[in-house]
Protein backbone atom coordinates (compact mmCIF):
# COMPACT_ATOMS: atom_id res chain seq x y z
CA UNK A 1 0.00 0.00 0.00
CA UNK A 2 1.41 3.42 -0.92
CA UNK A 3 2.18 5.77 1.96
CA UNK A 4 0.09 8.74 3.11
CA UNK A 5 2.20 11.32 1.27
CA UNK A 6 2.60 9.17 -1.83
CA UNK A 7 -1.19 9.02 -2.17
CA UNK A 8 -1.53 12.75 -1.51
CA UNK A 9 1.06 13.36 -4.21
CA UNK A 10 -0.80 11.15 -6.70
CA UNK A 11 -4.07 13.01 -6.09
CA UNK A 12 -2.27 16.34 -6.36
CA UNK A 13 -0.71 15.36 -9.68
CA UNK A 14 -4.02 14.07 -10.99
CA UNK A 15 -5.74 17.35 -10.04
CA UNK A 16 -3.12 19.49 -11.77
CA UNK A 17 -3.32 17.39 -14.95
CA UNK A 18 -7.08 17.69 -14.86
CA UNK A 19 -7.02 21.44 -14.20
CA UNK A 20 -4.64 22.21 -17.06
CA UNK A 21 -6.58 20.07 -19.49
CA UNK A 22 -9.67 22.25 -19.27
CA UNK A 23 -8.27 25.69 -18.81
CA UNK A 24 -11.73 27.31 -18.70
CA UNK A 25 -11.68 27.86 -15.03
CA UNK A 26 -8.04 28.79 -14.62
CA UNK A 27 -8.27 31.21 -17.51
CA UNK A 28 -11.38 33.01 -16.30
CA UNK A 29 -9.92 33.29 -12.82
CA UNK A 30 -6.70 34.85 -14.05
CA UNK A 31 -8.60 37.25 -16.31
CA UNK A 32 -10.81 38.15 -13.37
CA UNK A 33 -7.69 38.85 -11.31
CA UNK A 34 -6.21 41.06 -14.02
CA UNK A 35 -9.46 42.99 -14.34
CA UNK A 36 -9.58 43.46 -10.60
CA UNK A 37 -6.04 44.82 -10.57
CA UNK A 38 -6.76 47.08 -13.52
CA UNK A 39 -9.98 48.48 -12.07
CA UNK A 40 -8.55 49.17 -8.63
CA UNK A 41 -5.31 50.74 -9.83
CA UNK A 42 -7.21 52.84 -12.32
CA UNK A 43 -9.70 53.96 -9.67
CA UNK A 44 -6.84 54.89 -7.33
CA UNK A 45 -5.13 56.78 -10.13
CA UNK A 46 -8.20 58.99 -10.46
CA UNK A 47 -8.05 60.17 -6.85
CA UNK A 48 -4.25 60.41 -6.75
CA UNK A 49 -3.11 58.68 -3.55
CA UNK A 50 0.34 57.69 -2.42
CA UNK A 51 1.03 54.37 -4.12
CA UNK A 52 3.16 52.62 -1.53
CA UNK A 53 0.54 53.24 1.12
CA UNK A 54 -2.26 51.58 -0.79
CA UNK A 55 -0.31 48.79 -2.47
CA UNK A 56 -0.57 46.23 0.37
CA UNK A 57 -4.31 46.73 0.80
CA UNK A 58 -5.07 46.63 -2.93
CA UNK A 59 -2.84 43.60 -3.38
CA UNK A 60 -4.53 41.53 -0.69
CA UNK A 61 -8.08 42.56 -1.48
CA UNK A 62 -7.40 41.48 -5.08
CA UNK A 63 -5.87 38.20 -3.95
CA UNK A 64 -8.81 37.57 -1.60
CA UNK A 65 -11.37 37.99 -4.35
CA UNK A 66 -9.37 35.96 -6.80
CA UNK A 67 -9.02 33.25 -4.16
CA UNK A 68 -12.79 33.07 -3.77
CA UNK A 69 -12.95 31.86 -7.37
CA UNK A 70 -9.78 29.79 -7.35
CA UNK A 71 -10.35 27.94 -4.09
CA UNK A 72 -13.76 26.62 -5.00
CA UNK A 73 -12.31 24.10 -7.42
CA UNK A 74 -10.59 21.58 -5.23
CA UNK A 75 -13.54 19.48 -4.12
CA UNK A 76 -16.01 20.67 -6.74
CA UNK A 77 -13.90 18.67 -9.20
CA UNK A 78 -14.62 15.45 -7.33
CA UNK A 79 -18.27 16.12 -6.62
CA UNK A 80 -19.15 17.24 -10.15
CA UNK A 81 -17.62 14.12 -11.66
CA UNK A 82 -19.11 11.94 -8.93
CA UNK A 83 -15.70 10.45 -8.32
CA UNK A 84 -15.46 11.42 -4.65
CA UNK A 85 -16.64 8.01 -3.43
CA UNK A 86 -14.16 6.14 -5.60
CA UNK A 87 -11.40 8.46 -4.39
CA UNK A 88 -12.33 8.04 -0.72
CA UNK A 89 -12.30 4.29 -1.15
CA UNK A 90 -8.89 4.36 -2.78
CA UNK A 91 -7.40 6.88 -0.35
CA UNK A 92 -8.59 5.15 2.80
CA UNK A 93 -7.68 8.00 5.14
CA UNK A 94 -9.79 11.10 4.52
CA UNK A 95 -7.18 13.60 5.64
CA UNK A 96 -5.02 12.52 2.69
CA UNK A 97 -7.61 14.25 0.57
CA UNK A 98 -7.34 17.44 2.55
CA UNK A 99 -3.59 17.68 2.16
CA UNK A 100 -3.70 16.82 -1.55
CA UNK A 101 -6.40 19.40 -2.23
CA UNK A 102 -4.66 21.96 -0.05
CA UNK A 103 -1.44 21.61 -2.03
CA UNK A 104 -3.41 21.84 -5.24
CA UNK A 105 -5.20 25.01 -4.10
CA UNK A 106 -1.95 26.57 -2.93
CA UNK A 107 -0.26 25.80 -6.24
CA UNK A 108 -3.10 27.28 -8.28
CA UNK A 109 -3.21 30.37 -6.06
CA UNK A 110 0.55 30.94 -6.35
CA UNK A 111 0.39 30.54 -10.13
CA UNK A 112 -2.38 33.12 -10.35
CA UNK A 113 -0.45 35.47 -8.10
CA UNK A 114 2.62 35.05 -10.29
CA UNK A 115 0.62 36.76 -13.03
CA UNK A 116 -1.37 39.27 -11.05
CA UNK A 117 1.15 40.59 -8.51
CA UNK A 118 3.74 41.79 -11.06
CA UNK A 119 0.93 43.48 -13.00
CA UNK A 120 -0.25 45.29 -9.91
CA UNK A 121 3.34 46.20 -9.13
CA UNK A 122 3.62 47.86 -12.54
CA UNK A 123 0.17 49.46 -12.64
CA UNK A 124 0.49 51.03 -9.23
CA UNK A 125 4.20 51.81 -9.80
CA UNK A 126 5.52 51.00 -6.37
CA UNK A 127 8.62 52.73 -5.13
CA UNK A 128 10.72 49.64 -4.59
CA UNK A 129 14.17 50.96 -3.66
CA UNK A 130 13.82 50.15 0.03
CA UNK A 131 11.70 47.06 -0.56
CA UNK A 132 12.79 43.70 0.77
CA UNK A 133 11.76 41.33 -2.02
CA UNK A 134 12.49 38.16 -0.08
CA UNK A 135 10.13 39.17 2.71
CA UNK A 136 7.53 40.29 0.21
CA UNK A 137 7.57 36.83 -1.34
CA UNK A 138 7.41 35.28 2.12
CA UNK A 139 4.33 37.39 2.92
CA UNK A 140 2.63 36.28 -0.28
CA UNK A 141 3.56 32.66 0.29
CA UNK A 142 2.41 32.38 3.90
CA UNK A 143 -0.67 34.50 3.28
CA UNK A 144 -1.65 32.25 0.39
CA UNK A 145 -1.00 29.20 2.54
CA UNK A 146 -3.59 30.40 5.04
CA UNK A 147 -6.06 31.20 2.27
CA UNK A 148 -5.58 27.79 0.67
CA UNK A 149 -5.93 25.89 3.95
CA UNK A 150 -9.13 27.64 5.02
CA UNK A 151 -10.45 27.55 1.45
CA UNK A 152 -9.89 23.81 1.10
CA UNK A 153 -11.57 23.10 4.42
CA UNK A 154 -14.59 25.22 3.56
CA UNK A 155 -14.82 23.99 -0.02
CA UNK A 156 -15.22 20.46 1.31
CA UNK A 157 -18.16 21.84 3.32
CA UNK A 158 -19.91 23.87 0.63
CA UNK A 159 -19.72 21.32 -2.19
CA UNK A 160 -21.88 18.98 -0.17
CA UNK A 161 -24.78 21.42 -0.13
CA UNK A 162 -26.47 21.60 -3.48
CA UNK A 163 -27.07 25.20 -4.54
CA UNK A 164 -25.22 26.62 -1.56
CA UNK A 165 -21.92 27.39 -3.22
CA UNK A 166 -22.48 31.11 -2.77
CA UNK A 167 -21.96 30.42 0.91
CA UNK A 168 -18.24 29.92 0.33
CA UNK A 169 -17.07 33.54 0.61
CA UNK A 170 -19.50 34.20 3.46
CA UNK A 171 -18.05 31.33 5.45
CA UNK A 172 -14.48 32.15 4.50
CA UNK A 173 -14.08 35.87 5.19
CA UNK A 174 -14.72 35.95 8.95
CA UNK A 175 -12.19 33.15 9.41
CA UNK A 176 -9.64 34.88 7.22
CA UNK A 177 -9.47 38.22 9.06
CA UNK A 178 -6.18 37.33 10.81
CA UNK A 179 -4.65 36.44 7.42
CA UNK A 180 -5.83 39.73 5.96
CA UNK A 181 -4.29 41.73 8.81
CA UNK A 182 -1.08 39.71 8.91
CA UNK A 183 -0.52 39.64 5.17
CA UNK A 184 -1.23 43.34 4.60
CA UNK A 185 1.00 44.52 7.42
CA UNK A 186 3.71 42.07 6.42
CA UNK A 187 3.61 43.39 2.87
CA UNK A 188 3.73 46.95 4.13
CA UNK A 189 6.74 46.19 6.30
CA UNK A 190 8.50 44.45 3.41
CA UNK A 191 7.94 47.47 1.15
CA UNK A 192 9.43 49.79 3.74
CA UNK A 193 12.28 47.36 4.41
CA UNK A 194 11.28 47.19 8.06
CA UNK A 195 12.46 43.68 9.01
CA UNK A 196 11.45 43.92 12.63
CA UNK A 197 7.78 44.44 11.93
CA UNK A 198 7.76 41.99 9.02
CA UNK A 199 9.03 39.16 11.19
CA UNK A 200 6.33 39.68 13.79
CA UNK A 201 3.58 39.50 11.20
CA UNK A 202 5.17 36.53 9.48
CA UNK A 203 5.02 34.66 12.77
CA UNK A 204 1.32 35.49 13.08
CA UNK A 205 0.70 34.16 9.56
CA UNK A 206 2.68 31.02 10.34
CA UNK A 207 0.70 30.37 13.52
CA UNK A 208 -2.54 30.74 11.59
CA UNK A 209 -1.25 28.51 8.78
CA UNK A 210 -0.09 25.87 11.20
CA UNK A 211 -3.41 25.87 13.04
CA UNK A 212 -5.49 25.49 9.91
CA UNK A 213 -3.15 22.84 8.54
CA UNK A 214 -3.44 20.74 11.69
CA UNK A 215 -7.14 21.23 12.57
CA UNK A 216 -8.25 19.23 9.49
CA UNK A 217 -6.56 16.13 10.93
CA UNK A 218 -9.17 16.23 13.68
CA UNK A 219 -12.20 17.50 11.80
CA UNK A 220 -11.92 16.29 8.24
CA UNK A 221 -13.39 12.86 8.91
CA UNK A 222 -16.56 14.59 10.10
CA UNK A 223 -16.74 16.84 7.05
CA UNK A 224 -16.49 14.04 4.50
CA UNK A 225 -18.53 11.53 6.43
CA UNK A 226 -21.25 11.38 3.76
Amino acid sequence: MPSFWRKAWLIYRKDLTDEFRTTDHLLSTVVFGIMLVFVTSFALQLVDVSTNDVFPAVLWVSIFFMAVLALQRSFAKEVDSGALDALLLAAGDRSILFYAKFLFSLTVLLLLEAVVVPLLWVFISVAWRKADVLFLLAAIFFGSWGLAAVGTLLNAITVQLAGARLLFPILAFPLLIPVLIGAILCTQGALAGDRQSVLGWLYLLMIFDLLFTVIPLLLFDYILEG
Binding site: L153, L154, I157, Q160, L161, L171, P174, L175, I177, P178, I207, F208, L211, I215, L219, Y222, I223, E225
Partner: peptide
Protein backbone atom coordinates in the same frame (compact mmCIF):
# COMPACT_ATOMS: atom_id res chain seq x y z
CA UNK B 1 -26.20 19.71 10.90
CA UNK B 2 -22.87 17.95 10.66
CA UNK B 3 -21.20 20.58 8.49
CA UNK B 4 -22.55 23.44 10.60
CA UNK B 5 -21.16 21.74 13.70
CA UNK B 6 -17.69 21.63 12.17
CA UNK B 7 -17.94 25.29 11.18
CA UNK B 8 -19.16 26.29 14.65
CA UNK B 9 -16.12 24.70 16.25
CA UNK B 10 -13.70 26.34 13.82
CA UNK B 11 -15.31 29.76 14.37
CA UNK B 12 -14.92 29.60 18.12
CA UNK B 13 -11.30 28.54 17.86
CA UNK B 14 -10.68 31.43 15.50
CA UNK B 15 -11.90 34.12 17.94
CA UNK B 16 -8.65 34.39 19.92
CA UNK B 17 -6.68 34.64 16.67
CA UNK B 18 -8.89 37.48 15.46
Amino acid sequence: KRLAAVYGIICFMNVPLV
